[in-house]
């Protein structure tokens, strides 16, 4: 029986293994994995082509788009132009729409986090009668189709609409055709998911932390702002990304509550209108669509990790 000692230099000894069997084994393994790689690659290509097609076409000359497939652009890579973007941004009002999307999305995202974190703290760390029942109801609300709520809420809005114009931003102050109406609506629709996600995260924080803070004499408010919020940044970032994308990509709520006010329309509404009026004018549509995708894509690539976390944390989103 051969023995090796730690200090003998033959740690690097190469045992005499027949190289042929080794090579055969490797080859066999590779051949076995070929179908795996091929099918995966095929799916990756299939899934990427539509987005790439859009991106390439949005930089092509209108004449070229109409007369030859986007895949021909590879042959004449210097014919690409940013004219489509200029047209869309200037003549079709996409710049204003982009601005509207930001105005609608940012406050809706902040509001939903505040209100939901507030409620989730109570659900997670306060005892009160009907707590579980109330939370179950919240889970149930996750699956209510938004469409269903539109008519009644629209009726309510028409009763409370304040017709005066909102300074600086434009639109009415509240009700249909107002930014504020959009903020409140998006916040409300985002709440069930947000509360569900945050409550689960808050609930997973160690109990000792709260108890020691209470013993130190901290109030609920203090615990909430100094302990819960800072510790929950992963969940809150995930939620923020989600809510941001959800509001940014929303069409239905904007279509209904903005009441066709063209000055307030976010990009989704704008692009939809372009589709119905420009049908197959792909130089306009592709550029417009890509502008509306740009920010979500940036967020997606920059914050992919949180994005995935958010999905995993609450994959019941309705």
């Amino acid at each position: 029986m051969a023995r090796r000692h730690p200090s003998t230099p033959d740690g690097s000894t190469v045992a005499a293994a027949p190289p042929l069997t080794l090579a055969l084994g490797t080859a066999r393994r590779l051949a076995g994995r070929l179908p795996l790689h091929l099918s995966l690659m095929a799916l990756m290509v299939l899934w990427s082509i539509p987005t790439i097609a859009l991106l390439v076409s949005s930089f092509r000359d209108p004449m070229a788009i109409a007369s030859s497939g986007w895949w021909n652009a590879i042959r004449e890579p210097f014919d690409l132009t940013a004219n489509n973007y200029q047209t869309v941004l200037e003549k079709q009002g996409m710049a204003r729409a982009f601005f509207n999307s930001v105005i609608i999305t940012v406050p809706s995202t902040v509001l939903v986090i505040l209100v939901a974190a507030w409620a989730a703290y109570a659900f997670a760390w306060m005892k009160f009668p009907t707590r579980n029942l109330l939370f179950l109801l919240m889970v149930a609300l996750l699956v209510v189709p938004v469409q269903m709520t539109l008519i009644p809420v629209l009726r309510l809005y028409s009763d409370v609409t304040i017709n005066a114009e909102l300074p600086i931003l434009g639109g009415r102050i509240f009700g249909t055709g107002s930014y504020m109406g959009m903020w409140v609506a998006h916040t409300a629709y985002g709440l069930p998911f947000a509360i569900y996600l945050l409550r689960n995260f808050f609930g997973s924080l160690p109990r000792d932390l709260f108890e020691s803070a209470y013993l130190d004499g901290a109030s609920d408010l203090r615990v909430f702002f100094r302990i819960v919020l800072p510790l929950s940044m992963p969940a809150i970032s995930a939620l923020a990304i989600f809510q941001f994308l959800w509001v940014w990509n929303d069409l239905l709520v904007a279509l209904i509550f903005l009441g066709g006010e063209p000055d307030l329309a976010p990009m989704t509404v704008k692009v939809t209108n372009l589709v119905s009026s420009f049908g197959t004018n792909y130089q306009v549509l592709t550029a417009a669509a890509f502008i509306s995708m740009a920010l979500p894509l940036v967020i997606f690539f920059a914050l992919q990790r949180y994005f995935v976390q958010g999905i995993l944390a609450g994959s019941v989103k309705g």
Binding site: R3, P6, G11
Partner: peptide, 22 residues
């Protein structure tokens, strides 16, 4: 240890007659 076999033997043998420091 470190991927290398140091010593093989019956338990008492290893205790009584270790072949190296390790």
């Amino acid at each position: 240890k470190d991927g290398l076999l140091q010593q093989v033997g019956a338990p008492q043998d290893l205790y009584d007659r270790p072949e190296n420091v390790f």
